[in-house]
Design a protein around this nucleic acid. Structure first.
Lengths: 206, 206
DNA sequence: TCCTTTAGGTGTACGGCATACGCCTACGAT
DNA sequence: ATCGTAGGCGTATGCCGTACACCTAAAGGA
């Protein structure tokens, strides 16, 4: 009976994501998104209750780019690595939204599907019960921590250079480590750390 | 020659931290901190350039509560665990500041001292070169990820309960894992994951 | 065909935010 | 006693989210 909706959820979330990709998370505002869509600011409130709900839609949109299907073959470590890399690729392409993901993590269907697949791979690897709970949380903790580190302080960036330039007599080990770190690609870093996590999770006595 | 400063850096950062602990990170504003100190808003700008610098002082203050001295004895895994637990204790007591720590991580002396000690323990464990860089980053990634998970979605909280209540036919492994997770204490979770990371870092071929 | 109903869309306004700027003033050195 | 400096403050600007009241397009029934 009423007027039809002129906006899809995808278009709305896509506009918000475009703003974030262009101007950073600090540039995200209801006014900016409305301008991006060519509507008035208040029109957005016909589609979302408040800004927080809009943020949730953005997180959902990025999670939708993550393929949740279980990788078919290979050892379980490689399959979990594949799942982790899919997450990293999707969120790495929109690094600025990372702070949003934590707040909206539970609510997103994409997040749940991803977790289900990882939990399934763990079960197939013979990791179950409380050990699986610890393993799943550990993988999530490492992945979100690593994604944030990678984009807030990449190893090739100025942060590492600044650490390498610290007085070597006060920070001998840290500067030495930073020197090696500068030659480490982000891929090598992410995969190397993840491999260690998985190796530890699979070891006896975990 | 001029008027003496009436405010110490510690008092300023302490007031901001008090506001955060009471009203959350969203409650932090220059106005709120000024009211906490009984001064006018603009008086704060005699002590910090802008809000961001104030946030840095808060992070420094919490890092100052972390003992950076190397734990004397025990196997290297236990010593790194001690260092990780110190970080977790300090930031867990002011969980709301976690989003700030990432942005200000490089600048804090406390952060550097902590990193130096961990790098030193790794070196003493025979982990050096690029392997040490990967190990240090992996430990940091796990720790900051785990702290955030612990406070934004604790295992005993509603998030896990909601996951456990999901349709079991759609998310069989995830709901099963969540059921076990609800009986897992935060300490057991943090230490269990960290132990896995360290086990993996120490294993051959890392 | 026209009218009614309902939701989409808008403009205005309010309170809160960070902060630039200019003023007054307390103080220590002279 | 005075003078320069820096501490402290009030005001103003331009953002922000969003409550509210209003207009209007369009679909279903008459």
């Amino acid at each position: 009976m009423p007027r039809p909706r002129s906006l899809s959820t995808e278009r709305l979330a896509g506009a918000a994501l475009a703003v974030i990709d262009r101007d950073g998370l600090a540039g995200l505002s209801m006014r900016a998104v409305a301008k991006e869509l060519g509507m008035s600011t208040m029109a957005l409130y016909r589609y979302v209750r408040d800004r927080e709900e809009l943020e949730g839609l953005v997180v959902d949109l990025v999670y939708a780019e993550v393929d949740p299907a279980p990788p078919g073959e290979g050892p379980w470590e490689a399959r979990i690595e594949t799942m982790a890399l899919r997450l990293r690729d999707a969120f790495g392409a929109h690094a600025a939204i990372m702070p949003l993901t934590l707040a909206h993590r539970h609510a997103s269907a994409g997040s749940l599907c991803w977790g289900e697949t990882v939990a399934r791979i763990l079960a197939e690897a013979g990791i179950d019960g409380p050990r699986a709970a610890i393993a799943l949380r550990a993988v999530i903790a490492y992945v979100i921590g690593a994604i944030q580190l990678e984009h807030l302080g990449p190893l090739e960036g100025e942060g590492t250079a600044a650490i390498a330039a610290l007085p070597a007599d006060e920070f001998p080990h840290l500067t030495e480590t930073a020197r090696h770190a500068r030659r480490l690609g982000p891929d090598e870093e992410f995969r190397g750390g993840l491999a260690a996590v998985l190796r530890g999770l699979g070891a006896q006595g975990a």
